[in-house]
Write a protein that binds this DNA or RNA. Sequence first.
DNA 1: ATATAATATCAATATTCATTGATATTTATC
DNA 2: GATAAATATCAATGAATATTGATATTATAT
Lengths: 103, 103
Amino acid sequence: MPKPCCTKNSQKSKEIDSITEFIHILDEPNRLRILCLLKQGERCVCDIFGSLSLSQNLVSHHLKVLRDAQLIDYKKEGTRVIYFRNENVIAKFSELLNNIVTL
Amino acid sequence: MPKPCCTKNSQKSKEIDSITEFIHILDEPNRLRILCLLKQGERCVCDIFGSLSLSQNLVSHHLKVLRDAQLIDYKKEGTRVIYFRNENVIAKFSELLNNIVTL
DNA sequence: ATATAATATCAATATTCATTGATATTTATC
DNA sequence: GATAAATATCAATGAATATTGATATTATAT
């Protein structure tokens, strides 16, 4: 008799739901591009949307998603807002991603 | 002068697009549940939708997505279709996931 | 105070896709 | 061959959300 697994409201199922939440954040090519660009160093918004050939408001939108997930952080310099990666949180995400396969 | 990165149609950008393709497959809790359940051994469709409390057609749909991505495979036994994990492909996916952070 | 530059927010649209209900297909049994 | 069981497919719907255009906010400089 197989052990139950991922039944409704099971512990595993809840685990999977929370993992899906942040997989979802990475499931967007422009967000991955932003994370990739920031790997080269902090950037203001105008540099980001310039480099990636995206509209300003679209980039602001994705930055907000990444910010809310704490994958990135920012500082203000005059009228500029400088974004940079939050490597600590990114590392935690990375670990969770590794667990997906062993779920 | 920062190196360009993830500019439109760049190599990195194409890489990211293809990675997004399979992140997308994992960005669905019911699909993760199926993969999790199959970790305990092969299962026919009726066992899967029974265990997960999902409708038959919904499970068939997700199985097709996983099948198309080659994350799972199947064999037929009478009227039953038995699904099982394709561990080789899953391992490759896993490796790609690891690269996301270092993109 | 006004004007300008940089960024964020908001409303509307479009697209993708999970979900549902109904039907088709396949295999086995009588 | 007719019926039943298991699975797959199809069309329609609804929800989530990326994208766009317009506007608001914030900070600086004149």
